[in-house]
Design a protein around this nucleic acid. Structure first.
Length: 263
DNA sequence: ATGTCGCGCGCAGCGCGA
């Protein structure tokens, strides 16, 4: 089973690229972030005609996450929103179970807050979201399922995940407190799927539209797939679909994919 | 030093978020 996470930065603007990616890569599960549209505006028909079932958690203008599963796989036990704050109206979390022939797989699509500027309520919200995510991840881990927590974490885990670390030292994506919160989640028993397969520095998933970041390869790695022990046992490979950043009108993020052997 | 998108609103181009 191939599971992909991709921040598309507007699913309506990126529909052609999304359909091309589904056709070429044929992922079994896709976790999308930054839909930037309400549920009714999601291009459901086009994605269904490409062979997928769809569950969305959208919002006007900002945020928005979705899960796709390649038919005949269904999406079950769909959860929209992260527990822990009933007042949180931002659409940043959707989770579902995909019951495969061998073992159920639980997947979440996460759009973790950016958190900039630091020192404002935006950063407090980011840290609070990370605490809520960890609490929920701990409760899910107790199920001992094949579990993949995938998404745009807006966290640069290590200096080797950024081309120019000095430029990011005061940024919400790379602050020590942010990295510590991410490590705390990892330390609950999760594994960074891409890092488990490839230890090389300079594996990036995002290049800013500005300042020629893409041609100069000034990227950062912020899109992650965290695996439960039961998922790690089945991990075969992981990869970054970097070529999509070079298309016309690309997202600023590229897909990241793990392959699991569900035997 | 600077460099970009996509959204809503509303019909130009600004403010916001990233």
């Amino acid at each position: 089973m191939r599971i992909t996470t991709w921040n598309v930065n507007s699913v309506k603007q990126r529909l052609a690229h999304l359909l091309a990616f589904l056709a070429e890569a044929q992922p079994d599960v896709v976790c999308l972030q930054e839909l930037k549209c309400v549920d009714d505006a999601f291009p459901r028909t086009e994605v269904e005609e490409a062979g997928y079932v769809v569950a969305t958690h959208g919002q006007k203008a900002f945020n928005g996450v979705a899960l796709l599963a390649r038919r005949p796989l269904p999406l079950q036990e769909i959860r929209r929103g992260l527990p822990g704050d009933a007042a949180d109206e931002q659409a940043r979390y959707i989770e579902a179970v995909i019951p495969t022939a061998t073992v159920p797989v639980r997947v979440a699509s996460i759009y973790l807050p950016n958190g900039n500027p630091v020192g404002t309520p935006k950063y407090d919200y980011k840290l609070a979201f990370m605490r809520r995510l960890q609490a929920h991840a701990v409760s899910l881990r107790a199920r001992e399922e094949v579990l993949v927590l995938a998404g745009d974490y807006n966290v640069i885990p290590e200096p080797e995940d950024v081309a120019d670390p000095a430029a990011w030292v005061n940024d919400a994506l790379f602050l020590p407190q942010t990295r510590a919160a991410f490590r705390s989640l990892i330390n609950e028993g999760f594994t960074d799927g891409l890092r488990a397969c490839d230890g090389r520095p300079g594996l990036y998933s995002f290049w800013d539209y500005q300042a020629g970041c893409w041609p100069r390869n000034q990227g950062i790695r912020i899109d992650h797939l965290l695996l439960s022990p039961q998922a790690l046992d089945r991990l075969v490979s992981a990869s970054v679909q970097k070529h999509l950043r070079g298309l016309e009108k690309p997202s600023d993020h590229v897909p990241v994919t793990v392959e699991l052997d569900l035997g």
